[in-house]
Design a protein around this nucleic acid. Structure first.
Lengths: 196, 196
DNA sequence: GTCTATAACTTGATAGAC
DNA sequence: GTCTATCAAGTTATAGAC
């Protein structure tokens, strides 16, 4: 308690560094070997410490993986949100597709982490959280172009979202795959449904 | 050896029944709890036998899962191939989408099994096997309509394949989701790229 | 604060009784 | 042919030394 005044900053720095390191190695591990391969022992080994040391910084293994997933997800939505807000309403769906494909291409490990978490997601996750943001951008873009918002924006968003996933997954297998061109083709198909 | 002449048929029948049962419970298990949840113990419990009994009928646990995956995959490709061949060349891409979405909707467990296998696929699998068949249908349809086949059929197939996955995944979360309508919307987006 | 040592349990697989 | 009993190796997590 009395040490806290001058000790907190330094200790918190170490604490944060360790947490950041553990999150980093966990993302690498999940990306390389999948969810199942990211055991506590493997995480500890890559970080150069023991299993117990890992569980000192995080209450449980699930917490480590959750933190790693959150880290990757936060970076993604922050990046995409920035790009979307910088565009005018009529072109926000296209900006969404471009920035999402771009971000996932530039961060392959984050991509695998997010995909793995989506699939292996046991239980409490809202699937609508995935397509709702894009669905709203689609509806808004339709209105901005002088049309009505009554199309099935949900289905459009779901299909486009699936297309994005597939493009990124393909690039994961074939690094030479031109994701930028693929994104533009997906945008073409999307734009056709946006015009009134 | 001497018993074999009259015993083979009966024993083989039992053998096949057991294998079929194990494949069935494994598909259910993977569908419900994912790849990681399908442990040898869980498979044995659901089948009402012991772990050792399972490993009597299959050499290893991986073999059980592989057989289950193969079973689901064979049913899918057989169904889709039949529907595609029944259609004329110009409309085969649409038939592909409809039959695939339809089959996956009618067999939700098979669907999860296939998805789980795709993601958790460690190593030797050809990713092109997924989009190549559709890509060829797309090119052929373009030609049949009097156009050239020089569009990027690969990217089209990848995007449409991702759309199918997303539609089916959505129906898995929301059983009331109208996958037939979604399939038709996806076909609309696809058709726009097929006309010369 | 960090780690050693170990607990408590589950995994896939095998040997041998019946 | 099928099962009991057992195996070694892996898993997460905890208690307590330092």
């Amino acid at each position: 308690m009395t040490r806290k005044r001058e000790g907190t900053a330094e200790l918190t720095l170490i604490e944060r560094a360790r947490r950041a390191q553990l999150i980093e190695v966990t993302i690498e591990l999940v990306a390389d070997r999948g969810y199942g391969g990211a055991s506590l022992a493997a995480i500890a080994e890559r970080a150069g410490i023991t299993k117990a040391a890992v569980l000192y910084h995080f209450p449980t293994k699930a917490a480590v993986v959750r933190a790693a997933h959150q880290h990757a997800l936060t970076a993604l939505v922050g990046d995409v949100a920035g790009a979307v807000e910088a565009a005018d309403v009529a072109h926000r769906p296209a900006a969404y597709v471009r920035s999402m494909v771009g971000h996932l291409r530039e961060h392959p490990r984050h991509t695998r982490m997010i995909i793995e978490a989506m699939v292996h997601d046991d239980g409490d996750h809202d699937p609508a959280a995935r397509w709702r943001p894009l669905a709203e951008l689609v509806s808004a873009a339709r209105v901005a172009r002088g049309g009505s918002a009554d199309i099935d924006a949900r289905t459009t968003a779901i299909i486009v979202g699936g297309g994005i996933d597939a493009i990124v997954a393909e690039q994961l297998h074939d690094p030479d795959y031109d994701t930028a061109a693929a994104a533009e083709r997906l945008i073409e198909m999307l734009e056709a449904t946006l015009s009134p």
